[in-house]
Computed example of a mutant assay.
Amino acid sequence: MADIEVQSTCEDGYTVESVINGEWELIVDALSNDGPSPNEVLAADYASCYIPALRVAADQHGYDDIGEVEIEVAADLDEDDDLEAIAFDLTVEADLGEDAQDIVELGEDICHVHSALTEELHADISIESGV
């Protein structure tokens, strides 16, 4: 048995309904009519993976509670609607001081989605802390 099992079904058109591990339902629509597009889901998934990774990285640097973390994702598509670039504007409530960039980089190492993407598509991440 695989660690992750997804059953995806498309009855017609471009809307795909997926059931993840027999429990979670996700609707993705290539045209963004009935749900987010695959690229939109990937951008959201990347941010959703990176935030917990950043929290673990901060904890490993001695920050027990970094408060609220927010990522604004900007993803650019090429003329074929393929993802061409992803950037994160990251805001962290706690002041991470001189450790901020080290925490960002460790978060990249911990984030599974970051590791899964090609190097050319890794997010260009900026951070603002202590807000």
Rank of each mutant, 00 (worst) to 15 (best):
E119F: 07
P36S: 09
D59I: 07
G107N: 07
H112S: 12
I127W: 00
I4M: 13
P38R: 02
E119T: 15
E79P: 01
D64Y: 01
L31S: 07
G130D: 03
V28L: 02
D45L: 12
E79S: 07
H114V: 08
A100L: 04
D29C: 03
E40Y: 01
V19T: 15
N33Y: 08
H114E: 13
E93P: 08
I27W: 04
A74W: 06
D95A: 13
E40I: 04
D102Y: 07
R55F: 04
M1I: 14
H112N: 03
I71N: 01
E105Y: 10
A58Y: 01
E84I: 01
L96I: 07
D3L: 15
E108C: 09
D109H: 13
D81T: 11
E70G: 10
P38Y: 00
H122C: 13
D59Q: 14
L31M: 14
V19S: 09
E5R: 13
E11A: 12
S8K: 10
H114C: 12
W24P: 02
E25D: 12
E105I: 05
L90A: 02
Q7C: 08
S32F: 04
S8Y: 04
A87N: 02
A53D: 10
E40F: 00
E11P: 12
A116T: 14
D59N: 13
V19Y: 03
Q60F: 07
V69K: 01
A87Q: 05
I71P: 02
V41F: 06
P52V: 06
Q60G: 03
D3V: 14
E23F: 04
V113M: 09
E23L: 07
S32W: 03
G13D: 08
A94N: 03
A116E: 08
Q7L: 12
G97Q: 01
Y50L: 03
A43M: 02
G107H: 05
V73L: 01
